[in-house]
Design a protein around this nucleic acid. Sequence first.
DNA 1: ATACTGTCTAGAAGTTCATCTAATCAGGAA
DNA 2: TTCCTGATTAGATGAACTTCTAGACAGTAT
Lengths: 118, 118
Amino acid sequence: MSKQLPVLATCCTPISEAALEPAQAAEGAAVFKALADPIRLRLMSIIASAGDEICVCDITPHFDVSGPTISHHLKVLREAGLVDCERRGTWVYYWPIPERLTWLSALLATPATATATA
Amino acid sequence: MSKQLPVLATCCTPISEAALEPAQAAEGAAVFKALADPIRLRLMSIIASAGDEICVCDITPHFDVSGPTISHHLKVLREAGLVDCERRGTWVYYWPIPERLTWLSALLATPATATATA
DNA sequence: ATACTGTCTAGAAGTTCATCTAATCAGGAA
DNA sequence: TTCCTGATTAGATGAACTTCTAGACAGTAT
């Protein structure tokens, strides 16, 4: 179930430091788009804060939308490289890819961010 | 030209640490949506890396789309609270609101982020 | 006042997106 | 095998988004 993705640089220059090249902007915007939905942002947060991994069956009850809709949103997060998953028996488990979040966080970092997170 | 916005908490719990409440998720997703477009992400980057402020007339030449399209995207960034602007004579100047970027960066922070930005 | 420049607003066209229902696939149990 | 449950895929619909052209507005200069 793993996806082949263009590998994002593991580190980057924050957007406040130098203007992004169009190609980098397209890459970054695609990942932000994956988080630009309330349900997907909550999904990401539930998965990322779950500790290790979490079963879809434990995710769905948090939401008021249909199962296929959750499945669709999980696919978007997967294709953005933010999470990955594996079927084990009847159930499918999801876990976060924290490098992706780290990369985004660094992209948005400002001089104040370093102080705030230090 | 300043906007009245619901004030985001200046600090926050990273999404990896605790699951976001629906209301927080809606708030965050709205800001991510503003950055989820290649042109807007480049605009944000150009404005944030300009030092102090920058004239629209110095922004437009970087892009291949029409003036009204740039104007529309700047409005989206403004309504997301990411930038603000002021007309001075013939020209309009934009500057970043770095607290907003700091907030987003902190929201996405992971344990690794603190190390990376420290 | 009139003309010119820089920027924004209004309205329209085409595209993308979120969501649903129905159907399909994967795996376990009888 | 056959049935049942968990999850995904397929297809359709209505809403939202991006972009354009045309027009309006703000300010300067002649």
